Simulated assay, not measured.
Amino acid sequence: MKLVSDSGGRADPAAVARAFDPERLRQARQLALRTKQDVAHAVGVSAAAIGQFESGVTPPRADTVDKLAAFLKVPVAFFTAGRPRAQLESGSVFFRSLRSTTAKQRSKSVSYTEQVWELANALERHVRFPNIDIPGFSGGEVAPGSFSADPAAAAQQLRHAWRLGDGPISQMVRLAETKGIVAVLVPMVEDEVAKIDAFSTVALNRPILVLSPDRADDVYRHRFSAAHELGHIILHGGRTAGTVDIEREADKFAAEFLTPARVMESRLRTRLDMADVLAVSREWGIEPRSVVYRSRELGKISEATARRGYIRLNQMNIPHEPVARFPGELPSLLSKAVELAEQRGVTIPELARELAWSPAHVRRMLGAQDDRPHLTLAE
């Protein structure tokens, strides 16, 4: 729907009010980590009125649309119906650190994932993405029976399908992207809330994997998070997220996918040598703690020895390896798609208009950082 604009190219609030999409208000509010009461107070209506706007019972007036856009920091046109939109339920998004996330954070993550899909969908109108190379994937899930229900066996089957052999996976995130999975790396949540490691969904026509470096900027943890979310994609389509058993299954998948047991059986030692633990960590791209855990899991060392190993690692205070030092672990599919689109004359401002986002928001979704210093004024 083409909206009447003012002389500055801004959508007419009255036209937007007539074509108002209730789900866009819900999405913008959740992305801003705001409650209905927060929004109501800011725009001068009741919380019940915001609920009616979001449920589609009544649309907001033109002046309220203006205030909603200003408070939630979106263009007025963002609230217009008619653009392709994904709608996810929170139970279809898998979180690696579910227990440390609040309902508000999970709602933001759901809305964020919807927008990742919108960006990918817009880009796919201009650029051909890699085909989805996941056996049995169709219609938002992997067909039952495509993989073993046992997480370790499923990881072995995927390694075989992707012809990875038994060696270390040098670039975990790039591997996922070459198989048609959309991955993004962004600081997902603001400083005032706990950080989210990673989350994913297979409920759309293309799997989406979101990683955040905020909680611990450590490439080894980051790689495990990516493999963990890949486990959800392979094992859990059609299942409700959030249960302890599902998270454990994803952990087991990740451990086997990154460090196949048949190789680790001969590689890991029966006595814990910290120099060798660090060597295995570097060789296989996993955390030193994961080496100790895998050694215990495969029966190479006792539980008591593993506990001593964890204590020793804490005392060593091993520095993290930042994700940015490892290009193959930084998502690049969407940013490269933007580069190709620009070669065809489709710029970021044009994508922003197509999506009814600001150009700055498109860049944030692509993982661009705002490195400008913060201006602080003394009172």
Rank of each mutant, 00 (worst) to 15 (best):
Q343T: 07
R10S: 10
P168G: 02
L351W: 04
P349T: 11
V43S: 06
V184P: 03
G231W: 05
V16G: 00
T305P: 12
D273T: 11
T64K: 14
P207Y: 11
H228W: 06
V277H: 01
A143T: 15
D217A: 06
D276W: 12
E287S: 15
I348G: 10
S90H: 14
D21N: 15
P260R: 00
Y310Q: 07
V210I: 14
R296W: 10
V39L: 00
S92W: 09
A32P: 03
P187D: 15
A122F: 05
G145Q: 14
F129W: 09
P130Q: 06
E283H: 07
G8R: 15
A250V: 03
Q87S: 13
E287Q: 14
N317R: 15
F253W: 03
R96M: 08
I134K: 02
E283N: 14
G51A: 01
Q315D: 11
G51P: 04
G165W: 00
R307E: 10
V127G: 05
S109Y: 09
E229N: 11
A352L: 05
I348H: 09
A120Q: 04
T58C: 12
L333R: 05
S266F: 07
R10L: 15
Q87F: 13
A216V: 07
A143P: 01
P135F: 07
S90D: 14
Q52I: 04
E342N: 09
L366K: 08
R262V: 02
V76F: 01
K252Q: 12
S335D: 12
R61F: 14
V142D: 01
V16R: 02
G285T: 03
G309K: 00
Q52K: 11
M316P: 09
A275I: 08
W357M: 01
A40Q: 06
D12P: 05
Q369H: 09
P151Y: 02
M274E: 06
K252T: 10
I196N: 00
V346D: 03
K2E: 13
V280L: 15
A203S: 11
R364L: 15
E23C: 07
S335L: 12
T102Q: 06
A15K: 06
S5I: 14
M365F: 08
A360H: 13
S146F: 04
R296C: 05
L185V: 10
A198M: 04
P319V: 12
L31H: 02
S7P: 00
E342I: 05
R99W: 08
I132V: 15
G285S: 07
F20A: 01
Y220V: 04
H236S: 09
A203M: 01
